[in-house]
């Protein structure tokens, strides 16, 4: 095991982590502000991927325009889901929203199988995204760089949004105490709707990237990203956006390094190991890496 090999595996872990991070940012944002574990987040990733496929293959739109429309579709789905199902449930126990999001997820998956068929489809990105770059012993592709840059750009933009803008202040106030925020004249409905729109728009963009990186999409593809972003967000700490990114990188790195650095026979224990590490992190830091104590609410 030489230096080049380890460097390559580290790079692989970072790339996978940034893929998870891209999905986890939106998840963590909704989680932080509405305190909702939104399992339908992964299925918005799926919708984003299929929207991209339709726009690129059939409509043949140029790539930046496709990305813009995908973002819009995601925002629209987020608003729709919030308006129809989560808004009427506001004030109910947290687990209610979680179950409702599971319901939405199952619904979207089965609708996907019914209308799109369960066959996986190939998904091809423009060829300049697929080019291989070499940096010393490490090789990666243009799309990987784009994913990492997008993830970091979105993180910075979101932190700016939440910390500096008026909407962000309204969001934080809503997250802190919904009733007091309302008394202060904040339009709660608008704020939460904006949160869902932004979070889901990011999920749709993540779907575009996910399809582009792996080249294959199907109606059930949302399950894995949904689950991983949930884990990443919790590890990072409830509602902390940098925490979610950190959690995603820890997840991606530990998955790759566990497979890459130990003898191959242990590969099939990967998930057990990864979750073992996560449990240990949580036991040592019961509020996640960067989270605050949320008190006794559950």
């Amino acid at each position: 095991m030489d230096f080049g090999y380890i460097a390559q595996q580290l790079a692989n872990g970072l790339i996978l982590g940034s893929m998870y991070a891209l999905v986890a940012i939106g998840f963590s944002m909704i989680y932080g502000i509405v305190r909702l574990i939104n399992f339908a987040h992964g299925d918005i990733v799926m919708i984003g991927a299929f929207t991209t496929l339709v726009l690129m293959e059939t409509a043949g739109l140029p790539f930046p325009l496709v990305a813009f429309f995908v973002l819009l579709t995601g925002c629209g789905m987020g608003i729709l889901i919030e308006r129809i199902s989560f808004r009427p449930m506001r004030g109910a126990p947290q687990v209610t929203g979680f179950i409702a999001s599971l319901g939405i997820s199952i619904m979207l998956q089965n609708l996907g199988i019914l209308t799109l068929s369960a066959q996986p489809r190939n998904f091809s990105f423009p060829s300049y995204m697929q080019r291989i770059l070499n940096l010393g012993p490490v090789s990666f592709r243009v799309v990987d760089v784009v994913i990492i840059l997008t993830a970091f750009f979105l993180m910075v933009a979101l932190i700016f949004l939440v910390q500096k803008t008026k909407l962000g202040i309204a969001m934080r106030a809503t997250a802190e105490n919904i009733d007091v925020a309302r008394l202060m004249g904040i339009d709660i409905n608008k704020t939460i709707m904006a949160t869902f729109a932004i979070g889901s728009g990011l999920a749709a963009i993540a779907g575009l990237m996910w399809g582009g990186k792996f080249g294959q999409i199907d109606p059930l593809m949302g399950y894995v990203p949904g689950l991983k972003s949930f884990v990443a967000a919790v590890i990072g700490g409830v509602g902390s956006i940098p925490g979610a990114i950190l959690g995603a990188f820890i997840l991606g790195l530990s998955e790759v390094l566990f497979v890459g650095l130990l003898p191959p026979i242990y590969s099939s224990y990967r998930d057990a190991f990864v979750f073992g590490v996560l449990i240990i992190i949580l036991i040592a830091m019961p509020n996640g890496l960067l989270g605050k104590d949320i008190g006794d609410k559950a």
Binding site: I37, Q94, F230, V231, V234, I235, V238, S268, Y269, R270, D271, A272, F275, G276, L278, I279, L282, I283, P286, N287, G288, I294, D296, K297, A298
Partner: peptide, 22 residues
């Protein structure tokens, strides 16, 4: 895991389920 609360406990028990499966 029982000192964890809320969603943290959910993730930890989910992890336990996955470990058992593996």
């Amino acid at each position: 895991v029982l000192r964890l609360k809320g969603h943290y406990l959910a993730v930890a028990t989910m992890g336990f389920l996955i470990i058992v499966q593996v």
